[in-house]
């Protein structure tokens, strides 16, 4: 469950951005649309606790994350949330397998080799398990990012422009996998994008005014 109430955020020296209230049920998928600069990333980061000191309340899974201390929020993020970003988001020094294991390690959850295999298999990456990050194609890297986002079985997955850097074929594959894995795990999914190709795939949509 994800819910916001009278949330506003003001960048220093700029006019506050006001976000309309909404509520997503557990397991629901939602597309966050809007022009570039409309505040999609800002909202997503507020929801994920990556950006703070806003007005209003943000409830995730019965927790008002605005009330959490910084370290409690880190903990909460590791246990309950998963993130997929546009690019630059795999740890370059590590292998695919190690990137996946970082999620339970940092969230202080048990690390399971079986779970790594399971997730990689699901995303068609089992043969890339010990590959270095720089040996991956864009599409593969994005699928590894999804694998890492779901490995801890999070309650909510936030994806920020997950397909914007991909060609049509990879966009199709990556978005389908993201949606189906999220459904299988009954995770709530929020995808922020200006990528029109995703519009047909998620019915619930919110458009941020420019």
């Amino acid at each position: 469950m994800v819910e916001i109430k009278s949330v506003e955020y003001a960048y220093p020296g700029a006019k506050a951005i006001r976000f309309a209230d909404f509520k997503l049920a557990g397991g629901e998928h939602c597309l966050l649309l809007g022009e570039s600069g409309s505040g999609k990333t800002t909202l997503l980061h507020l929801l994920g606790g990556l950006l703070r000191s806003q007005q209003g309340a943000i409830r995730i899974h019965d927790t008002d994350i605005t009330q959490l201390s910084e370290s409690a929020l880190d903990h909460f993020r590791g246990k309950h949330l998963g993130f997929v970003f546009q690019r630059n988001h795999l740890l370059q020094a590590l292998s695919v397998r190690q990137n996946l294991l970082m999620a339970p390690f940092l969230a202080e959850l048990p690390q399971s080799e079986e779970r790594v295999n399971e997730v990689l298999d699901r995303l068609g990456l089992l043969n890339r398990k010990s590959a270095r990050v720089r040996e991956l194609s864009q599409g593969q890297a994005q699928r590894v990012a999804i694998a890492r986002a779901v490995i801890n079985k999070p309650d909510v997955i936030f994806a920020d422009e997950p397909t914007s850097a991909l060609d049509d074929k990879n966009c199709e594959r990556v978005s389908d996998l993201l949606l189906s894995v999220a459904s299988e795990q009954r995770a709530t999914l929020v995808v922020a994008t200006h990528d029109q190709r995703l519009k047909a795939k998620i019915t619930r949509q919110m458009v941020l005014p420019a």
Binding site: L50, K79, L91, L106, A107
Partner: peptide, 19 residues
């Protein structure tokens, strides 16, 4: 500089500042 993405990603995965 090149590490800042890694550091931010680690935070997004639940690592605290002190970590």
């Amino acid at each position: 500089k090149e590490r800042q993405y890694d550091l931010a990603i680690m935070r997004s995965m639940g690592a605290s500042r002190s970590r």
